[in-house]
Amino acid sequence: MKVAFLMAPEGVEQIELTEPWQAVIDAGGTPKLISTRSGKIQAFHHLDKGDTFPVDQTVADSDVEDFDGLVLPGGVANPDFLRMDPKAVAFVKGFVEAGKPVAAICHAPWTLVEADVLRGRTVTSWPSLRTDIRNAGATWVDEEVNVCDAGPAKLITSRKPDDLKAFCTTFIQEFGA
């Protein structure tokens, strides 16, 4: 199982990267850090700088066909930056169109909104995204983890870092590990 983790050069919530990353490794999979720029990404602990992580490849040099699934970690700034990058948005949309599972936590569904892949779906997120998700044509629910298979690809979503255990267990199962 090869899993893409897409994030902007800065703004990802560190625990929403590291725990799912470790879950992929623990399941015998290979995680790959994909970003809009090469080098390193800067993670955050809410608003404080956390660690940096090396980028494995840029989104411009990545192909959906090389991966079995996509994880979108949150953080407020991370998905907002990704929404502004057409290649990142196309990468996300490509997973859904290819029928490959996508897991998104906290603020990460903002990128799904921008990719226009939520119409007719049911998802959860950080509560402040509720209106954006509804405006994108989806049903928003307040659940620890939600799995929606009402489209070409399964969407696994969670609300916040407190949901990480359920999020990781569920997306690993849904990714087929």
Rank of each mutant, 00 (worst) to 15 (best):
M1F: 12
F5C: 14
P9V: 05
I15G: 06
E16W: 02
W21Q: 02
Q22K: 15
V24H: 05
I25Q: 10
A27R: 08
G28R: 06
T30S: 14
P31D: 00
K32F: 15
L33A: 08
I34M: 08
I34F: 11
K40A: 14
K40T: 13
I41P: 15
F44A: 05
L47Y: 14
G50E: 01
F53C: 11
P54G: 07
V55K: 02
A60E: 14
A60Y: 04
S62I: 13
V64C: 07
E65K: 15
G69I: 00
G69N: 03
V71W: 00
P73Q: 02
G74T: 01
G75Y: 05
G75C: 09
V76E: 05
N78S: 05
F81H: 08
L82W: 01
R83N: 09
R83K: 14
R83Q: 06
V89I: 13
K93L: 12
G99T: 14
G99D: 12
C106H: 04
C106D: 04
H107S: 09
V113C: 12
A115G: 12
D116I: 09
L118C: 07
R119I: 12
S125Y: 03
W126R: 01
S128R: 01
S128Q: 02
L129T: 00
R130Q: 12
R130V: 08
T131Y: 09
T131V: 14
I133M: 05
R134E: 15
R134K: 15
N135Q: 11
A136W: 02
V141S: 06
D142I: 10
D142T: 07
E143Q: 13
E143W: 03
V145T: 01
N146S: 07
V147C: 10
C148H: 05
C148E: 04
A150S: 15
G151E: 03
P152M: 12
L155R: 01
I156R: 04
S158Q: 03
S158V: 04
S158Y: 05
P161C: 00
A166C: 08
A166R: 02
C168V: 03
Q173N: 13
A177D: 03
